[in-house]
């Protein structure tokens, strides 16, 4: 699994946020845990506000961020943010939160089919150890576009995982 290395400029995302252990209810790849519920809320919100969002959202791409906090190694709790890339902040509706990711170098891994539900974080750690790249271990981004067909069709899907590298 060889990644592309890219320089990403500042990324502005607008969406919904959750902090805690999202697998309290269910660990399955399902809509029943907090991540699934947040995606449902996000999807419903976008569908209901298409016109409003078309002026500020990069269309057809959604992001899921996992952000690690100082407590994360101890408790396993972290922040999950689901949103779209916003082209400007001033038009973001009150219901949405904004996340600004500073410019960074990322290793971009393209995951196919069953790789998506596998322990790819572990594979990335092994890749970093083998190649000498230093992982920032601050957050990760999953970028969903029309190549992702849904949780019920993970086998036919593709997504990109953006892993920040130390400067």
């Amino acid at each position: 699994m060889e990644p592309r290395i890219i320089e990403q400029s500042q990324l502005t995302l607008a969406g919904f946020s959750f902090y805690g252990n999202p697998f309290q209810v269910s660990g399955f790849w399902t809509e029943e845990n907090e991540i699934g519920r947040m995606w449902k809320r996000f999807g419903a919100y976008c569908a209901a506000n298409q016109k409003l969002l078309s002026a500020i959202a990069v269309q057809g791409i959604a992001h899921e961020l996992h952000i690690y906090h100082p407590d994360t190694p101890t408790t396993g709790e972290f922040e999950v943010f689901v949103g779209f890339e916003a082209t400007r902040i001033d038009g973001v509706p009150l219901e949405l939160s904004i996340k600004l990711l500073p410019p960074a170098r990322y290793a971009v891994f393209t995951l196919h089919g069953r790789q998506i539900a596998s322990d790819w974080s572990k594979m990335i750690q092994e890749w970093a150890a083998k190649t000498g790249h230093q992982l920032a271990n601050t957050h990760s981004i999953q970028r969903y576009d029309d190549r992702f067909k849904g949780l019920d069709r993970v086998d036919e899907s593709t997504l990109d995982a953006y892993i920040p590298l130390k400067a």
Binding site: Q24, F28, H66, G76, F78, S121
Partner: peptide, 19 residues
């Protein structure tokens, strides 16, 4: 396991989060 995968798998199998 990575932390994320462990957390998900542990919860899936035991119905408790690891913590």
């Amino acid at each position: 396991y990575s932390l994320f995968h462990f957390s998900r798998t542990f919860s899936q199998i035991t119905h408790h989060t690891p913590y």
